[in-house]
């Protein structure tokens, strides 16, 4: 049952996919990290109305599968809603996926994919 240590020991960053305000706030908290050049990968993505779903999905894949140094991925719920199929089928333990509220979109527990799983687990 134990995931090999390599699966989690390097996971030290948080990543975020969110609207400008959420990202700004979380970056102020100090979670922002840019890997050294030349690839200069950022661990955050600002999504606005112009961002395409494909770009969100790509970032989601990058943070969940490609990068091995992300421990927790935070995603605004209303953005998770846009790639709901990907979020719902995501079952890995690492990185942990956490849906967070944003300023303009209060948190709705009914939509949270993990919460739904928890409920199923306890037989509801």
């Amino acid at each position: 049952m134990a995931a090999p240590a390599s699966a989690y020991k390097d996971r030290q960053f948080l990543a975020v996919i969110g609207d400008e305000d959420s990202v700004t706030g979380l970056l102020l908290a100090g979670i922002g990290h840019v890997t050294p050049p030349p690839d200069s990968q950022k661990n955050f993505l600002v999504v606005d109305s112009k961002t395409e779903n494909a770009a969100i999905e790509e970032a989601f894949n990058r943070f969940t599968t490609e990068r091995k140094d992300i421990g927790i991925l935070l995603i605004n719920q209303h953005i998770a809603e846009r790639i709901r199929h990907r979020v719902d089928t995501y079952t890995a333990a690492f990185p942990a996926l956490l849906e967070i509220p944003s300023k303009d979109h209060p948190y709705d527990p009914e939509r949270d994919s993990v919460l739904r799983r928890v409920r199923r687990l306890f037989g509801e």
């Binding site: 134990a2 989690y8 960053f13 970056l27 908290a29 979670i31 840019v34 955050f44």
Partner: peptide, 22 residues
């Protein structure tokens, strides 16, 4: 200040340590 904050982010101050408990 959003843009400036995004651009000046370099290295994470806030990190997590991941461990497993048996």
């Amino acid at each position: 200040i959003g843009y400036q904050v995004q651009e000046s982010a370099k290295s994470a101050r806030f990190r997590v340590r991941t461990k497993q408990e048996n």
